[in-house]
């Protein structure tokens, strides 16, 4: 049988099996920490309790599976360090997701809304939002996500603009970190760290090299490295095992197809 002409549905079945089966086993591979992930970890780790940290949920709903472990490690780290988290979203689709996630993780640490964290919600036209917060956060977001005037959160009144903000983290599936670099960093000198989808790393590379962006923690591997730095093995670790198996399966499939096509041609 010429394997190279296999029905695509058999390939699909193989992929489904190699995704599902490894998940049933609790195997966590050894992860080596890269300097990129170490960099963003150190940036957050060097902040002091009570410092503000802004977390921007810059992704769309469809890529949530990839962004969730990244968002979790960042928020876990920030709550653990007792930082004051200011959440916001620059994609309308990420808004509700960001809020839900923040609420969930805050509960684990017994943090209170308005005291330890706030969620500003969504603003369209990200360039003007990014630039606007350089002048005044409260002007861009007079109300938070829950439609309360921002002034009532007295613990957050110290945050006027980027000058009071030691670090901003953009959790992104697309090119928004570039806009943070071009507008918040270049114009206001804001430190911007990035946790992003694996596909975006090459696009951001020059910004990391020039120091305009910090990080990145990228994709499921970045999240797993971060988990290790935080001292636990969570969802990203488990996924990484499955991930390895799937990559290997695809490679083996390609090799099998090539050998089969070669043998078949000889006949």
């Amino acid at each position: 049988m010429d394997l190279s002409r296999l029905d695509r549905r058999i390939i699909f079945l193989i992929i489904a099996v190699v995704v599902i089966v490894p998940m049933l086993f609790d195997i966590t591979p050894e992860v080596q920490i890269t300097k990129d992930t170490q960099q963003i970890f150190d940036a957050i780790d060097s902040l002091n309790a009570g410092d503000y940290i802004m977390v921007s949920f810059d992704f769309e709903a469809a890529s949530f599976p990839e962004m969730r472990p990244l968002a979790s490690v960042i928020l876990n780290h920030a709550f653990e360090k007792d930082l004051k988290i200011v959440g916001l979203a620059l994609f309308s689709e990420g808004t509700a997701i960001g809020y839900t996630l923040l609420e969930q993780i805050a509960r684990n640490y017994n943090k209170t809304y308005g005291l330890d964290y706030v969620y500003l919600g969504f603003r369209p036209q990200y360039v003007s939002a990014i630039l606007g917060m350089g002048e005044s956060v409260i002007k861009v977001f007079p109300e938070d996500y829950l439609k309360q005037p921002l002034e009532i959160y007295t613990d957050f009144l110290g945050l006027d603009n980027y000058e009071d903000l030691p670090l901003l983290v953009s959790i992104a599936d697309g090119s928004l970190p570039i806009h943070w670099a071009d507008y918040a960093n270049a114009r206001y000198g804001q430190e911007v760290a990035v946790a992003c989808a694996a596909v975006m790393v090459t696009a951001f590379k020059p910004y990391f090299e020039s120091g305009q962006l910090i990080g990145p923690a990228a994709g499921v591997k970045g999240a797993a490295e971060y988990e290790k730095l935080l001292g636990y093995e969570g969802a990203a670790h488990r996924r990484l095992f499955t991930q390895s198996v799937v990559h290997l399966a695809i490679i083996l499939l390609v090799i099998a197809a090539n050998i089969s096509a070669y043998v078949w041609r000889k006949k």
Binding site: V19, L24, P65, A198, V199, G219, V220, T242, H247
Partner: peptide, 26 residues
């Protein structure tokens, strides 16, 4: 090769939802 990683992660995410939240197997 680089993009495969992101795409596979998305599938794992959906499968996790089916196996954990829906079926409760994992």
């Amino acid at each position: 090769g680089y993009t495969v990683m992101s795409r596979v992660t998305l599938l794992i995410g959906r499968m996790e939802f089916l196996l954990t939240d829906f079926l409760g197997v994992v």
